[in-house]
């Protein structure tokens, strides 16, 4: 029960964070979306053994979190929720890839290296997506997607799915609360109630979603979701995209940690 209540709180906490005022929050949503998309695409374009070369990619989420005043706690907590999935994706590599490879002069299992690379890439991509949510909000992301000419039906689906997650969670919280008040062992749901409980939650959610939809229609909703926010990009937005674009491209073109390491090693010699 507290888990569901926490989940509702967590979803809403991101809406709250998105309403803050900071350097990053004031940027045009499209600038943030483009930078995050570019970052993610370049990140996943790396070779499967890349690990050290990915280090410069830490700067982008760190900068976004620091300049956007996003607390690390909620961000890391959500990352931890996703982390098992990332680990599951990478875990088969050490089992099937028994070869070895050399990294920084050390011989290492290539399966484990791929696993580490997947965890780093996955974690950074998820963190940057979470930061986009926390600094832009779903309305801003929808606005940017429309600017990128994504069909309105897809954007609407995204918006309504996001809205209805909390409706589903609220209904689930009520059903589970009702169960736990009458169950002898409220810590877990008995297997025989899973089916009826899920059915009830689904039916209630559909009903509730219908009422929300009715309320939208009564206020003139005909398929277009207007947020009223339609700012034009300014100098800071262009600078943000150009600056991070250059950094990401440079990091991709040159293995910055290796390059810095060589310079430092040269200086020491």
């Amino acid at each position: 029960m507290p888990n569901i209540v926490n989940a509702i709180y967590n979803i809403r906490q991101f809406d709250e964070l998105a309403r803050q005022d900071s350097l990053i929050h004031r940027l045009h949503p499209l600038a943030k979306l483009l930078a995050t998309l570019g970052y993610t695409v370049v990140l996943v374009s790396y070779d499967k053994y890349a690990t050290i070369a990915l280090l410069p990619f830490l700067f982008f989420p760190v900068f976004m979190a620091a300049a956007g005043r996003i607390p690390a706690g909620p961000l890391l907590k959500r990352l931890l929720y996703i982390e098992p999935m990332i680990i599951c994706v990478g875990l088969l590599n050490p089992l099937f890839d028994r070869g070895t490879t050399s990294i920084l002069g050390q011989t290492m299992s290539s399966g484990w290296l791929i696993f580490i690379s997947i965890v780093i890439k996955g974690s950074l991509a998820v963190t940057s997506a979470l930061l986009l949510m926390a600094t832009t909000g779903m309305d801003g992301i929808a606005l940017s997607l429309r600017k990128l000419k994504v069909p309105k039906i897809f954007v609407l689906q995204l918006m309504l799915t996001y809205r209805y997650i909390s409706v589903l969670l609220e209904e689930a919280a009520r059903a589970i609360q009702a169960y736990s008040l009458r169950a002898f062992n409220p810590k877990s749901l008995k297997r025989e109630v899973w089916g009826p409980m899920l059915g009830q939650i689904l039916l209630r959610t559909v009903d509730r979603a219908q009422r929300v939809y009715d309320a939208m229609c009564l206020r003139g909703f005909i398929g277009e979701y207007h947020t009223g926010k339609n700012p034009s990009p300014g100098f800071a937005d262009y600078l943000f995209v150009a600056g991070w674009g250059t950094f990401i491209a440079a990091s991709r073109a040159v293995n910055l940690p290796l390059w810095l390491g060589n310079i430092l090693a040269g200086a020491v010699k």
Binding site: A18, G137, F221, E224, H226, G228
Partner: peptide
Amino acid sequence: TTVFDDVAFGPRS
């Protein structure tokens, strides 16, 4: 997400 946006939903539509 805010009371303002909720009240503005109709006029914006």
